[in-house]
Simulated assay, not measured.
Amino acid sequence: MITVRIKPISPDQLSAEQQQLDEQIRRMLGGLRTPFTTIDENGALVGPFPVMLHFPELARPLLDWSTAVTTVSVLPVRVREVAILTTGARYGAGYELYSHSRIARAAGLSGTVVAALVAGQRPAELTPEEAVAHDVAARLYTGGPMPGALYRAAVRSFGESGTAELVFLIAQYAGISLVLNAYDVPAPPDAE
């Protein structure tokens, strides 16, 4: 039985501060063309968003970080999704794996590759750049400094700016995974 620690808040129950944040989240999601469920049958945001709405003062910086990392993106979407799924698999964050599996498939990663990433594996079918993104994410979540050879491979693949984006993206999704896990946020009913 799934126990939801923080329930979604229907739009008519939001405080003024929550309503402002809800509108910001919906604007952000509206520009993303999300192939996954973000709103329940009552019109309330789901996923990490109910937690954010309950703690708007803590959520705003996280959303600003997310916007900064996506607005200046130089990484191809498939590379980003490999890094996000590798990170999500490490933490077993159900909603993150659900949502980003769908984004990854929409971006052209095969179901086999996505399934392997979700299972915490390194698929052989990754492009060289995708493999570097996977390896950076996998190395960073084990702790300790990134080896020089891997750092140089990232800079060769993505440049200094792209490498920075990759590192900040991995850090951001590690944080989101921790929030999802702390509040035991489930994937919605339409998850495979």
Rank of each mutant, 00 (worst) to 15 (best):
T71Q: 09
A104R: 06
R78A: 08
E192V: 04
G120W: 12
G143Y: 02
G43P: 15
F49G: 00
Y98S: 01
M52N: 10
L117A: 05
Y151H: 12
F36D: 08
A138G: 02
A107F: 13
L109W: 08
G30N: 14
L32S: 13
L180Q: 03
L45D: 13
A138I: 09
A137C: 02
G30V: 02
M146N: 12
G30M: 04
E57D: 13
I103W: 15
L117V: 09
N42L: 08
Y91E: 02
V167P: 11
Q19C: 10
A191C: 01
P56R: 04
L63Y: 05
S66Q: 11
Q121V: 00
R152C: 15
G175D: 10
V74W: 06
S161P: 02
G159D: 02
P35V: 05
V179T: 09
P76Q: 05
L75F: 03
G162M: 00
A137I: 00
I103T: 03
G159H: 09
A182V: 05
G108A: 08
A174D: 13
A16H: 14
G144S: 07
A16M: 03
L166G: 01
K7M: 14
G148D: 12
R26C: 08
I84P: 11
P35E: 09
L126D: 09
G88W: 15
F36E: 06
V69Y: 13
E165F: 00
L180R: 06
V136R: 07
S101F: 10
I84S: 11
V118D: 15
L29V: 04
R152F: 15
S73C: 02
F36Y: 11
A104F: 15
H134K: 00
L126Y: 04
L62C: 03
Q121L: 08
D184F: 08
A89N: 06
G43R: 06
Q121K: 00
V132C: 03
A187L: 04
E23V: 09
V179K: 02
R156T: 13
I84E: 07
G92R: 04
M28W: 14
G47H: 05
L126N: 00
T71E: 11
A171W: 07
R80H: 12
A124I: 04
K7P: 13
P147E: 10
G92L: 14
P186Q: 08
A83P: 14
T112I: 00
V185I: 05
P8G: 11
L58F: 15
Y141Q: 14
V185N: 07
E165D: 05
A107I: 09
V185F: 10
S110P: 14
Q20K: 12
V113R: 03
T163C: 03
E130C: 00
I6F: 10
V69R: 09
A59T: 11
L97M: 10
D22A: 01
F49E: 07
A106H: 12
E23W: 07
P11F: 01
I84R: 10
G148V: 13
T87V: 07
T67L: 06
L140V: 00
T70P: 10
P123N: 05
P76H: 01
S101I: 01
L150P: 10
R80K: 06
I176S: 06
G88L: 03
L150A: 09
Q172P: 12
I170N: 13
G31I: 05
S99H: 02
S177D: 12
G108L: 05
